[in-house]
Amino acid sequence: MSKQQPVLFNIGWNACINCGACVAICPQEAGFVSPFDTIAVDRPCDIACLLCEQICPVDTITHVPAPAPATQNGAGVR
């Protein structure tokens, strides 16, 4: 299991040039892509390798720890 905590990416759209380098480097097996041809920003990334942040020519990808997933009884993990 990865030691990395899942993360949620944020893209600074103001600087994004839509170059697709983040998608090209992403090792996720399939479809971790947004409708704007960037990596997905609407769901957590479990791999959290952060290669997309490294490759971005305009340095416009950041992340926050993903919100804890809901447990079986519906309560969030604290």
Partner: peptide, 18 residues
């Protein structure tokens, strides 16, 4: 990827260009 081909590229081999 649909066909499960190994398409992943290494970070040391993808140039970020501007």
């Amino acid at each position: 990827k649909w066909a499960g081909l190994q398409t992943h590229i290494k970070i040391t081999e993808l140039a970020g260009c501007l």
